[in-house]
Amino acid sequence: MDKQLEKKHPLAVRWMHWINFPLLALMIWSGLLIYWANAVYSLRLGSYEVFHFFPAGFYETLGIPFRLAEGLQLHFFFMWLFTINGIAYIIYTFLSGEWRALLPVPASFRRAPLVALHDAHIVKSKPPQGKYNDAQRIAYTGVILMGAGSVITGLSIYKPTQIGWLTSLLGGYEWARWEHFWLMVLFVLFFGVHVFQVAMAGWANFRSMITGYDVVDAEKPTTPKEETVEV
């Protein structure tokens, strides 16, 4: 009697998480087919262009050029699934109480750097942790906000006349497109860090996102009665 199974991820969350993975990939892919037709963004330091999105070789390798119509068709199909899945996740998270494990509190922003330092093996002491630590809470809440941001900026460039108030609120059509693009870049960065952290956390953690369960050591009893029994 020395192990317990801990239910970590509800079935609905696991499905929505894994469905979102190909959906987000398809949104980014079709978005690239669209972006190619007017590829104007770059990373700049003053007037120096550090990186242009994207180099010709990138497009050639992935076979992106001259597929705008296809990109638009795919984007305006998968947008529904991506949005519905995201809304379903938010509703589920609130109704099930899962939000308690996911939302940060103001102090989380103070503690999150400590988590990063701990992960980098600079700080020894383990940060306080529920299912997730404070950095994870910020990241997992942030990525949902990014999803909402992508839907909102996407809508504002999809219907900039009929939803003109929203487009104006985002700084106008061209800014909204810029915001939509950079949210995509943030998603890619999130994906990179997420996969790295999952790889570092190990197999049991990854498996828990598939099965929902993890094995934990059973605690030694602490109630006086049981301590007596144990003695």
């Binding site: 009697m1 317990q4 801990e6 109480g97 494990a101 939302l103 009893p221």
Partner: peptide
């Protein structure tokens, strides 16, 4: 009547502050 793991009883722990739940099975071998 048995007990499971608890997080450090730190009022600053976000999990405690937000009353996060855990779901554990009965202990087993």
């Amino acid at each position: 009547g048995t007990t499971g793991r608890s997080w450090p009883d730190d009022p600053e722990n976000t999990a405690t502050a937000l009353k996060e739940f855990r779901y554990l099975s009965e202990p087993m071998s």
